[in-house]
Design a protein around this nucleic acid. Sequence first.
DNA 1: ACTTATCATGTTTTT
DNA 2: CATGATAAGT
Length: 662
Amino acid sequence: MGCKVEANQEYDINLDLLNDVQKQIIQNTEKNLLVLAGAGTGKTSTVIGKITYYIQKGIVKPHEIIATTFTNKAAREMSVRLQAKLGSNANAIWIGTFHKLCILVLEKHAHLMNLKTPLQVLPYDDQLQVVRKLLKPYKNYKPSHVLEKIQRAKETEKTNSLDAVESTILRLYKKELETMGMLDFADLMTYTIQLWREYENVLLEYQNRFKLLCVDEYQDINESQYAWIKLLNNQNTQICCVGDPDQAIYSFRGANIKYILSFEETFNNTEIIPLEQNYRSTQNILTVANTLIEHNKRRIPKKLWTTNIQNIDVKVCATYNDKLETVSIAKEIIKIRQNDTKSSIAILVRTRAQFLNIEDSLSKEKIQYVVTGSVQFMDRAEIKDAISYARFLYNPSDKIAFTRMIQSPKRGIGEVILSRIFDDDLLDSNIENKMQKMLSTLSGKAKESINKLVNQLKHWRSLLKVESLQTVLKLVVQESGLYNSMSNEKQANLQNWFDSLSSFNCLQDYIEHLMWQNDSENINDNAVEIMTIHASKGLEFDYVFLPGWVSNIFPSSRSNNILQIEEERRLAYVAITRARENLTISYALQQGLFTSKPSMFLTELGPIKVQQFENKTQFAIGDLVQHQQLGYGNITEIGMQHAKVQFSYSSKIVEVKSLTKA
DNA sequence: ACTTATCATGTTTTT
DNA sequence: CATGATAAGT
């Protein structure tokens, strides 16, 4: 540290492709840096450049670098790019989300914290299910909302924001997780912080080890993440944080921009460097983004600029209803793909509920797509059922897995017997033992099926010691009767699941894999990517479609105060700045059965004329079509400028001019 | 008394 | 897809 270095040919460090500000960030080895990086200003390249530079110059060793990313996907991407530059040297760098890094730390010192390794993290859906069950008597509380509050309370160790009911739920929720032997996201953060606070020598080990700490998306860190960074940072460490206050979109998770705004007071010897030259988008897209974000009152002024001279208009399109909107987008994509098979295309939405319509429209046009964020395959009921067996075999205290397992296939065990099993012996969390102990109190069919399951579990568990995971789980799914209870289609899906198991050596490997399964890698390069705007953070695409810009969807109807509206506006800003060349925003005033108004953001984009999608589709006789006023029907005759349609509402055949395929 | 099948209904955003 | 209400089956 502190040594001045000049760019040197012999190390093959190519800084030529970078601008002066980026070089300054990379070569500043002395100060704690905050890079205020606007969207598309090459922040990832700069961080990668910095890490590469440090290693190749011998300023720090790979294992002395730690970098936090916002998602696992971003971590993987960064690893790949570093490997391309540094080869196996890159493997020693610690890269991951805060939670992933916490797991690395906690597994190493598990004995100090009284934790079982490997750590088992309860998936989000299951966390929600625990809360939902506990909230049964309290009808007025929303599980997702309470879970969020619980997580915040655990992370900040402050319970004053909880009311009496929520405090009770928190206590019971903690107990549930404890008996299952599982952790949630908040636990990962708090246990790590607790470990570092209580064991000074452990903290020193990490403080002395890491000489460069990079934090991505610094505008979206929360209180516990801030505490984590502060603990790890010492005189020995250079910290390089990258963020953009205009892209802060996670306040619902406790993120607070006060941390990025107070960087200078938090760390000493700091320098703040703005990065404003945009390499991603055309000037038209940037103008729209800049114009929109300037409507936020509470913000540090900043303007993205580019030397990119390409100028394609940003389009705002209106359609009659939401179905027509996604159909039109599908048609636009077909048109794009006619001459251009390479460009990346994305459809970004405010809520997951919008996925359904989009997937439907793309499927009908036979357009390949991938949905990121929700793993379609893993979300299938039959796959979850099968996985519940694997989970319970691994952890006989996993209540969630057990509940699912024992009811698929149906075994004549319902809610009543289930709660009798759980309440049998509160001191023993092993559900298999519980089952055995209460067998004598049962009779008939229930006794028979529980007895059978207990014996099968013993048998399967002994098989795991000698046979491959794939073989055993295949047998489990068959012997349990799960396979035969399924439809042909579901059986086919289970076959795919069997195939996926061949790459795992043991049950433990598979269970660990499940934890990080939630973001799948894209296999098909050409596929249109569908995701929420939140999930699109950090990504870029040649063509971006933004449907659903209506008042009840975007900004979300739940945003009441100015702060929430400003966050929604930042979300819109993130969405717009994902686009490289083509941006199409759209809205439909008819949303299903309800009518809506255009989004307030549409008037904040500057002077843009609202257009219609161009639909030059070929129709054929017999096609199912939709007319704006007349509804659905089938084509009976096609002319140059019209078509005759048999509509479903009447027996008459009507001649019409504008139609869309349904 | 207990379980299961079926239908309607409802969902911000996520590690 | 999961839940809750309701009806029907064991």
